[in-house]
Write a protein that binds this DNA or RNA. Structure first.
Lengths: 207, 207, 207, 207
DNA sequence: GATGAATGAGACTTCATTCAT
DNA sequence: GATGAATGAAGTCTCATTCAT
């Protein structure tokens, strides 16, 4: 009957996230993890098969949760019938919602993006999957608003990638690498919202 | 200045770049590097003090060269007096020039961004320095064109970061991770140029 | 005398024999034994002090039973007064009885001879004791039949050892390592009987 | 240029044989071997890939040498045309030659038979190969002398196995486990020769 | 300058044994 | 008596670095 069982596993997971975040995958030793978790070396292997497996297990699980939450954030929040102001407001909510989500999983995102991106095929696959998910949402929005009507598939991809890059980079720089407050996130999101608005929907209204 | 045996050093550097790129820092052994370079194990230590030092020495040197080249690409190519079309053309040339530059140093950029970003403070410092350099160039341009007059320093930074993110992401996805041809780069640059134009200078012309 | 829970102990012993036989001493883990026995890890230590102790306890106990049975098989079955045919018949019965006995304890003999012979002083002692027992029986028979009258003690030992070797080897090869049927054992015993007869009693009749 | 190279390997092999012989495979640690060889732990892995590989490499190589030498010892030494005395003399020479050979490789035979027989498929295969080789030689001799004309293939095998067992057992008991002198080997071989003679060729002469 | 055998610290992992429940 | 999570000593193997030639 798993009683302390689950507790010990959680202690190990928390310790692992902390150590991986702080020192990266290779400079984190099992001995560091168990020391921080306050259990014996052997205990680690009751819950995880290898060092690699705890790493991928962490990022996989978090990633799934995040993709799910992202889907929810973007779901049907905007439509072409909305007024300019309402649109911007919704866009803003989506972007700041995304950033808050990343902040919530800050340590693991850090671990995944900064340390993990290169370590294993598995980690790379997970990161790519997350990107994929976002890209497809963005492209869907392009279509919904009939943006870039002259673009082919490749150009769509590039444009979506560019927008993804804007959000990723600002999110990384301010939310993950620095300690963005709620106000910071709000301010950042306003800037990014405006930029995205201007280069997409706003541009249409211009002429 | 062929001191020591400069040829041997170059062989080692080339082998190191290749192995680091292929397998990452931790999965590359000194024995792999010397084997590929065709020299003996001990020879490595005649030219480099440690494994870490060859890694950072590669990315530092390349980074300096790249920053210098980027400076050159951006230098005085655009000014507010230009016509819309000319501006776009210059912007396009700058962006595609940047992408070609990255492609030229593809292996090392890959190594730096994918494998190295997390390994050492040193590597992270170098990457940050490169970003810094680009950000300051972008901000300078904002000022030159009197863009975002209502923004404070923080918002400027965010906006610059966003633009940097656009370029970085598209560049990574298509130039570094996939094998972008000249045509690809041209097409990508057009898309990005248009987006940047729309969210900056173009927006001004609208009202 | 069902002390403790005798059933649990028997389950552990049976599981241990099976696992030791299949995988040898070192490649059998306590966890394998308890899993096969269907009890918890800690339960093992209620019945046995150490891994080594269950191993030696198995081979010791079986060995005692086997020595006792061998004594019984050989007891007074032959005498110099018998006719040639009767002698051969008795010899045959003894030998095939021995082989059947080994077959009956096949798993443990396998474990003792193949896996255990080298592991511990204790196991070696037990195996040696079994050999000793047989050798002394054989020498007693030599004396009873006034065989090898010119041999000294050492030569007696060697001759007995040789006969022991014949039986052991054929028994190992056909009964323990292969799956000898009743007919096989019968056939093997006939061959061995004839050989032993020819080199001992039979030889006397010749001149 | 392998100079100390080969010397170090030999030191490791000698140390390994000694330690394996003394303590068996599992109770010999790499650290024991390198300590005895007087080299560092890591040096071991310059010459052998794993602990298992040094073990099998030792027994395989020795085994090949021994099989070759055994073939030579048995080659055409006896023929049905010989006189009884000459035959016995040749048989004696063969058997004592065999025992001397085993004594020469005493440590490794010990390691192979006592410790190694069960450890790995590989070790078992090697031991079986050696037995096979001897059995086939013995059966060839049976045929050459038209012994046991009424025996089928199975009975031949059993008879050969029995003779193999005689030699193995006496050899193990006196040469490998005890320290048989030249005189001992001579005396043992006389006894075994006589027994084998009586149960094979001698038996024919009787009637 | 070049070599490559040797080094040894230290990592990951296993598993017999213990002990609180 | 039974459980099974926890322990930690100890083993195998790796690899950056050194150094005698």
């Amino acid at each position: 009957m798993p009683k302390d069982n689950e507790l010990t596993k959680q202690k190990l997971l928390a310790a692992a996230v902390e150590m991986f975040t702080e020192n990266g995958y290779y400079d984190t030793k099992i001995s560091d993890i168990v020391k921080k978790a306050g259990v014996a070396q052997g205990t680690f292997y009751l819950y995880f098969q290898t060092k690699e497996s705890i790493f991928t297990s962490i990022i996989k699980e978090t990633n799934e949760r995040m993709i799910h939450q992202i889907d929810h954030i973007f779901a049907d929040h905007v439509s072409p019938e909305m007024s300019e102001d309402e649109l911007k407001q919704r866009l803003y909510e989506t972007i700041s919602g995304c950033m808050s989500l990343y902040r919530e999983h800050k340590a693991i995102v850090y671990m995944m993006r900064i340390h993990g991106s290169s370590q294993f095929a598995e980690a790379q696959r997970v990161a790519a999957e997350c990107d994929e998910s976002l890209l497809s949402i963005i492209i869907k929005l392009f279509k919904k608003f009939h943006l870039f009507p002259e673009y082919d598939q490749f150009q769509y991809q590039v444009a979506a990638s560019a927008i993804n890059g804007m959000m990723n980079e600002t999110c990384m720089q301010y939310v993950i690498l620095r300690d963005a407050t709620d106000e910071d996130i709000s301010k950042i999101s306003r800037v990014v919202t405006q930029m995205i608005y201007d280069m997409t929907v706003g541009k249409e209204c211009k002429s």
